[in-house]
Design a protein around this nucleic acid. Sequence first.
DNA 1: CTTGGGACCTGGCTGC
DNA 2: TGCAGCCAGGTCCCAA
Length: 269
Amino acid sequence: MPELPEVETIRNELLLWVAGHRITQVTILDAKLVSGISVEDFRRRLIRQMIDDIGRRGKYLIFHLASGQSLIMHLRMTGVLLLNLKKADRYARASFQFSNGVQLVFSDRRRLGVIRLVKDASDIVGKLGPEPLSKNFTPHVLAQTLSKHRIPIKAALIDQSLIAGIGNMYADEALFAAKIHPLKRANNLLPEQIETLYRSIREVLGSAISSKGASVDTYVRPEGELGTAHFSFKVAHRGGKTCSVCGTAIQRVLVRNRGSYFCPNCQPG
DNA sequence: CTTGGGACCTGGCTGC
DNA sequence: TGCAGCCAGGTCCCAA
């Protein structure tokens, strides 16, 4: 599933292909992809627009257009952005052609992804919490945030309004690295646990970006290559396996209806 | 207000 | 082997 490291990787790699080029063709194969606007309006507003830059906020990918508008994509569970496909993609929902000949396909097996074209990106991303890798995100900010919520710490980590970009798998990885049980109440963490969790979040996300994301499920990079972050996972997607630190069987528990994997020995509850 | 649970969506897996 | 039904988890929406 694309979380912050995967979206950041996509951003970095797409930039080289589309920044500074114009959109010349837009094909929407699934009208549901562009919610709140007709396919015709969407196409008309987008064609001939120049891509100035690509940004990322949380799990949102933001194409900054020279007109000042923003084309915002969210890949949700199974969305992928693919460059210059040689053959038709069974799950293609939209296709963009650029003035330099590049073609970009939005492919999405489960059709949960969305694209929005807005004048002000903050309409969409304004309610997100801080970027966990930014300077704004400090141990103090994390402590302040967690102190206000009695929800399970796992639920707090994946709440995008509290911290942006962390999803199910990196939340599990950060909690394992910090040796914190996923069901521990957010406001009950000790100061040293918050400090450790802060470092764990930054380390887990940073190293996953270095590995170009985790190719579990459908995630591939725009040119079709895989990421390798999942090879270092300690608990995420490791149900039925044993903890690499202590040998205890990895356990699964439901937190907010999300499967959460943890080591009951390293992360005592 | 906070918190928790279901809907959306579909391919892949499980178990009968 | 066939197939019904469950599961995955991103965000939004609604109810307690």
